[in-house]
């Protein structure tokens, strides 16, 4: 039950892109086509699923204050948490390059479709963010850390898939020329984030609606409807593109 709750929470409520705005750079830069977005999204899921539990182990047995106690009671006072940034980053970069080398060696076809994204992932702040959140939210067990990693990855995957689908479609709309491409992507992402804010209600129980945000809430509803329409389109589109690829 704990796992299911954390899983859905990390996908929807604490969505990396829409709630905490992490991993925006690659999200915006690599979302022109659905197929590339899927590749990057899958790579992010994989890397998060590996690095979050790894960093959890590092945090538990090396970094935390008193974590070194397994070496002997005289080490109980050591607090290496100032090293957490650098060790987390080193783990991530090492994992990314290791995965790159392994995939290249054993599955060249997968490497061709996924490989070019791997270096991009090391600089994706969603990955480091995942590890740092795991640390600050004090996730209690290795299994939960894995769940959290996978969930966050899927959340990011969904986000980039959705925006890529919208961008493919939006290409055929008559948008003012200066807004085409990046500009409209920013604005659409903003609207999607507003839609995702409605999931936040799930966290607090939703019994406290804010009366002082009256102006806002009417806006929210519109956007949600927009988003629904977009999601529908997205689904169609995803199906279409699958057929085309096949």
């Amino acid at each position: 039950m704990e796992h299911i709750e954390l899983f859905f929470k990390s996908i929807f409520i604490d969505n990396m892109v829409f709630a905490t705005f992490l991993g925006m750079c690659s999200y915006l830069a690599v979302s022109k086509k659905v197929s590339t977005a899927v590749g990057l999204g899958a790579a992010v899921i994989f890397v998060l699923a590996v690095t979050v539990p790894l960093n959890w182990l590092l945090d538990q047995y090396i970094l935390k204050e008193g974590a070194l106690v397994w070496l002997g009671p005289e080490y109980a006072e050591y607090d290496l948490s100032f090293l957490s940034f650098i060790l987390f980053i080193a783990t991530i970069a090492t994992m990314v390059q290791l995965v790159e080398i392994i995939v290249e060696k054993f599955s060249p076809s997968l490497y061709n479709s996924l490989g070019i994204f791997l270096p991009l992932i090391a600089v994706n702040c969603a990955i480091l963010g995942g590890s740092l959140f795991m640390q600050s939210r004090e996730i209690p067990s290795l299994a939960l850390a894995t769940t959290y990693g996978v969930g966050s990855g899927i959340g990011w995957f969904l986000a980039i898939l959705a925006i890529a689908a919208i961008r493919e479609k939006i290409r055929y709309s008559s948008i003012p020329a200066p807004l085409r491409g990046l500009g409209i992507t920013f604005i659409v992402t903003g609207l999607m984030a507003i839609g995702f804010m409605s999931f936040g209600g799930m966290l607090t129980g939703g019994d406290e609606e804010a009366p002082k945000e009256k102006v806002v809430s009417s806006k929210k509803v519109e956007n949600k409807e927009d988003l629904k329409a977009k999601e529908l389109k997205k689904k169609e589109l995803a199906n279409n593109s699958k057929e085309i690829q096949e």
Binding site: F21, G183, F186, I187, T189, G190, L191, A193, M197
Partner: peptide, 10 residues
């Protein structure tokens, strides 16, 4: 934060 996205878009 969504408004930051929209401001940058503008």
């Amino acid at each position: 934060a969504p408004m930051a996205l929209i401001v940058v878009g503008i």
